[in-house]
Lab assay of single mutants.
Amino acid sequence: MVQKSRNGGVYPGPSGEKKLKVGFVGLDPGAPDSTRDGALLIAGSEAPKRGSILSKPRAGGAGAGKPPKRNAFYRKLQNFLYNVLERPRGWAFIYHAYVFLLVFSCLVLSVFSTIKEYEKSSEGALYILEIVTIVVFGVEYFVRIWAAGCCCRYRGWRGRLKFARKPFCVIDIMVLIASIAVLAAGSQGNVFATSALRSLRFLQILRMIRMDRRGGTWKLLGSVVYAHSKELVTAWYIGFLCLILASFLVYLAEKGENDHFDTYADALWWGLITLTTIGYGDKYPQTWNGRLLAATFTLIGVSFFALPAGILGSGFALKVQEQHRQKHFEKRRNPAAGLIQSAWRFYATNLSRTDLHSTWQYYERTVTVPMYSSQTQTYGASRLIPPLNQLELLRNLKSKSGLAFRKDPPPEPSPSKGSPCRGPLCGCCPGRSSQKVSLKDRVFSSPRGVAAKGKGSPQAQTVRRSPSADQSLEDSPSKVPKSWSFGDRSRARQAFRIKGAASRQNSEEASL
């Protein structure tokens, strides 16, 4: 019999049943779409005989028809080659250093092939080196495509196609095609072959870009420019304004007297070369007005044109410092986490200390709560409330009815002989401070409620009492009544008793 458990639990079988086999339907690529829901599959020993999904071999995947050992070796080799080519560490840098020397040698020989004295001697060596480079780069490109299958997102032919569309893979295939075209054109020995050789060798310069396949330098440059984009835009904007204004004023001053400034384009060329401190010297002002304007705008514009270099330099320094700090933080993070875990385990398992309490023990206690009866409008029989619902239920009951529930009420002091009981919340009678006064009792026990209740009776009109401690106690149990005489010590004692009862009640409510 096959059962599914969608909550991750395992159904224990009877003692008479045989052992169960467990598997996940959602992990089987050969299962139909209706059953690939991630549910837990529990099947008996007879299920494989019936041809269940556990008995079927995997229909898809890279190692579907391969033995386990061969499949493990296949995956291990794939991961190894992918890490060597895409994430070089340790001795893997030897291969990348060899590729760099190969590319650099091709670049140097290409430069010498353009010089007439070394053209014949360098062409033969360059031809052999180009063949070696094409073979190495071609094999490396196909190995990269194959090894990318170790990543989940690059599996299958669609994943390989996605990997081949990456920018550096596109550069690799462009350089490979250009190198093959250069060799094919150079072997023909005609004029067209020579011109094609010179034009296609430009694409071989892109080999130097592939040295940084992970794009660390470009990411660093982009992060620095993005972090200081506002400062760079401000400096370039002001420098551009200085360039336009200086070129226009010098053009007006030199026009008609200097042949170097016949057009405004000549003035812009002079301004750009001057403000960037290049100074070719092919154009320069000759009149005193033009020289004065050139000197003034040079002092202003050079500072703004040189400002981005300082901004980028400081940004690079701060970014490198931040990377070093992050690297040290990552080195200290795992030991710190292990130290915290060890300290907590020692703290939680220390049996010699009796003052340690688990944080979840508070929620494991069961509280007896009286249940409210809507018919009699009273609190009758009580029941046990689950631990997770205790706090919310108690808050709702307290807010609606005004009752305070507590588990172990402390012993109440008995009323003394000299001070009789003053009210239901005086704190001297046991069992009276455990409940709050309802809204109805407060209204009818207050002086205003009594006056409103007995407004029509003649006794209420004739008998008038001065405010005393009895009425103030019933009005607000948490307030201290004001004494009408300064020498009345009994009223002071009563006030301290009320304060103590109120503080105890607040602490009990907070504990609930």
Rank of each mutant, 00 (worst) to 15 (best):
A196V: 14
N190S: 13
G315R: 10
A62V: 05
T359A: 13
L221R: 04
T287N: 10
A294V: 11
G9D: 02
R201H: 00
R325G: 13
R207W: 15
F248S: 13
R210H: 15
K230Q: 11
D266G: 08
M211V: 02
T277S: 06
F261I: 02
I311N: 06
N258Y: 07
N350K: 08
R214Q: 03
M208V: 14
Y237C: 12
R214P: 15
A337G: 03
L268P: 03
H96N: 03
E231Q: 08
D212G: 14
S55C: 02
L351V: 07
L85R: 04
T263A: 11
I340M: 10
S358F: 04
H260P: 07
Y284D: 07
N190H: 12
G159R: 06
T234P: 08
E130K: 13
M211R: 14
T194I: 15
N350I: 07
I273M: 07
V320I: 11
A337V: 03
L292P: 10
A147P: 06
A265V: 05
K162R: 02
S247P: 05
K283E: 02
K230M: 12
L197P: 15
P430S: 08
L351F: 03
A185G: 12
N350H: 08
A294G: 06
K255R: 09
A178V: 14
T217P: 15
D259G: 08
L356R: 09
T217N: 13
Q204R: 12
G159E: 12
R210C: 01
T378I: 05
R198Q: 00
F304S: 11
N79K: 12
L101H: 05
F261C: 02
G159V: 06
L388F: 07
R213Q: 14
K219N: 13
S195P: 00
R213W: 14
P386S: 03
I273N: 03
I205V: 14
H260Y: 09
Y280C: 06
L293P: 09
L268F: 01
A317T: 00
A306T: 00
L243F: 04
D266E: 12
L203P: 15
G313E: 00
P335A: 11
S122L: 11
T296P: 13
V250A: 04
I238L: 08
R210P: 15
R144Q: 00
G189V: 10
Y127C: 14
Y284C: 01
R353G: 06
T276I: 08
H228Y: 10
A253T: 13
L200P: 15
W269L: 10
G8S: 01
F104S: 09
C169F: 01
H228Q: 01
L243V: 13
T114I: 08
A309V: 09
A185T: 10
D259N: 10
R214W: 07
A306V: 03
T276N: 01
S113F: 15
M1V: 03
L81P: 05
V250L: 05
V225I: 10
D355E: 03
P285L: 04
F329S: 09
A306P: 00
G418V: 09
L307P: 05
R333W: 07
P420L: 04
A267T: 14
K283R: 02
T349I: 07
E119G: 13
R291S: 04
N258S: 04
C242G: 09
D355V: 01
V225F: 12
E254D: 02
L107F: 07
T114A: 11
G271V: 09
H96P: 15
M1T: 04
L339R: 05
A265T: 04
T217I: 11
S352P: 01
D172G: 11
R353H: 08
S314P: 06
G239R: 00
Y154D: 01
L339Q: 06
V182M: 13
D212E: 15
Y362C: 09
Q188K: 02
W344R: 11
A193V: 14
D259Y: 08
L312S: 01
P411L: 02
L318V: 00
Q204H: 10
L356V: 09
A193D: 00
T263I: 12
R333Q: 05
E322G: 05
V250G: 06
S199R: 02
M1K: 04
L206P: 05
I209T: 14
W360C: 07
A265P: 06
A253S: 12
G301S: 01
A343S: 10
S342L: 12
V175L: 00
